[in-house]
Computed example of a mutant assay.
Amino acid sequence: MVSENEMYDVIIVGGGPAGLTAGLYAMRAALKTVLIEKGLAGGQVAISDSVENYPGIEEISGFDLSNKFLQHAKAYDLEVLHQEVVAIDPGLDCHSVQLANGVTLRGHAVILAAGGSPRKLNIPGENEYYGKGVSYCATCDGFFFRGKTVVVVGGGDTAMEEALYLAKLAKHVYVLHRRDALRASRILQQRVMAECKIEILWNTIPVEIKADEHGVCAVQLQDTKTGERRELATDGVFVFIGFFPNNQLVPAGVKMNGDGYVVTDEKCETNIRGIYVVGDLREKYARQIVIAAADGCTAALAAAHYVESKKASSEVCEAPTGLFK
């Protein structure tokens, strides 16, 4: 049981792949550690229908992979607390983590693994068929659509990059864009226009995703100028209209970039000593499960060194002066 009177070596906020890996490595380093997660362990991975790109595991459901992460960490007696964190307060001697139930925990180091979330269309069928034809990651799920027809929603760089990736696998790729011109960089636009498998539907938005017993089967479209609606048969819908970091708990003073991602060094440490940020919340080139796990490992190892150095320094400061005569 957690207690406000206890001092933790490491407090981990978030139980996705990054947070659970951090917990595993922190426990292996013999650090007094607690992991706090308000929802289902595994984060977004837990609701993925299938994962085929995690090294060493050819295919596994997102739920099962998340459970393996959790059970591996618990095998080292990681303490997992199912609570909501409402604030993280940096301090000179230690950092504080406030919970929604009024309890405040203190720790030498905090690893924030709050992740991020894709922007959604908020249309009927999107949530219902996530993992059954609706996806927010072509690298993760494109393999399932080899030789099939897919729809990409969006007009920016990410949407175009993912459309080009899907064109290598799918039979045909429809790109839906609400305007009559793309926002993507010129070079990406040229590549998309030159790809014979990609067809752009201008001034078009999806208003409903439909499915049968096999998964997504069609998308209802609407013309943004005329309002006319029609149905397009498809096997999958990939949504790339933006991604936002879950940065609500990032303490004031922590450096973030213009998009709201936290800037860290190679140890995943922020500009505030003892506060680390891992996973999709951290500024990085790519967002994959294996990279999030690597972040968790890096941060835990760095936190272990930080905590040990901090404790050693404290012991020297508190030692009797006679020892140094």
Rank of each mutant, 00 (worst) to 15 (best):
I111S: 06
G125W: 07
G154F: 06
I209E: 10
E213G: 00
L221K: 00
H214V: 13
A159G: 14
D141I: 01
D212K: 11
G156I: 01
Y130K: 04
G125P: 15
A138G: 07
K120S: 11
V97D: 08
M160L: 15
L169G: 04
Y174W: 14
F145E: 02
I200S: 07
V173E: 11
F144C: 08
L182N: 04
A113D: 05
G147Q: 06
C217E: 13
A170S: 15
L221I: 03
V173H: 12
V134D: 04
D141C: 01
A170Q: 08
I111T: 08
G154A: 06
P118H: 12
I209M: 11
Y136G: 02
A163L: 12
K210H: 13
A113Y: 05
I123A: 01
D180S: 14
E208D: 07
E199A: 01
V153M: 09
G102A: 11
M193E: 15
G215N: 11
A170H: 05
A194H: 10
M193W: 05
A109Y: 12
A109T: 14
K168P: 02
A218K: 05
A159P: 15
Y136R: 01
V216R: 01
A113N: 05
K148R: 14
D157F: 10
K148S: 08
H108V: 05
E213A: 14
G142P: 07
A114G: 04
T204Q: 00
E208I: 02
G155Y: 03
K132Y: 13
F143E: 03
W202S: 03
K148V: 04
G131R: 08
G102T: 12
G215W: 09
Q190Y: 06
L166K: 11
A138N: 03
P206Q: 05
A181F: 12
Y129K: 00
S185N: 10
A138M: 07
A100E: 15
K210Q: 15
E161S: 08
R146W: 05
A109I: 09
L201C: 07
V151N: 02
E195W: 02
T224Q: 00
T104Y: 03
N127K: 14
S135C: 04
N101M: 10
G125T: 13
V175Y: 06
L166D: 12
A211M: 10
A194V: 03
D141S: 02
L105Y: 11
M193N: 08
Q222C: 01
V152L: 09
A194M: 05
W202R: 03
I200D: 10
L182Q: 03
C140N: 01
L99D: 07
G156M: 00
F145G: 01
Y130I: 12
Q189T: 01
T149C: 03
F144S: 09
I111F: 06
Q190T: 08
C196A: 15
Y130H: 10
Q98D: 09
V152W: 05
S117R: 14
T158G: 03
E162Q: 14
Y130E: 07
A170R: 02
G215F: 09
I205A: 03
G156E: 13
D157W: 09
G107R: 06
G155L: 09
C140F: 03
G147K: 02
T139G: 00
C217L: 08
R186P: 07
M160T: 13
N122V: 00
C140V: 06
T149D: 15
A211V: 12
P206C: 08
V207Y: 00
H172A: 10
L166Y: 10
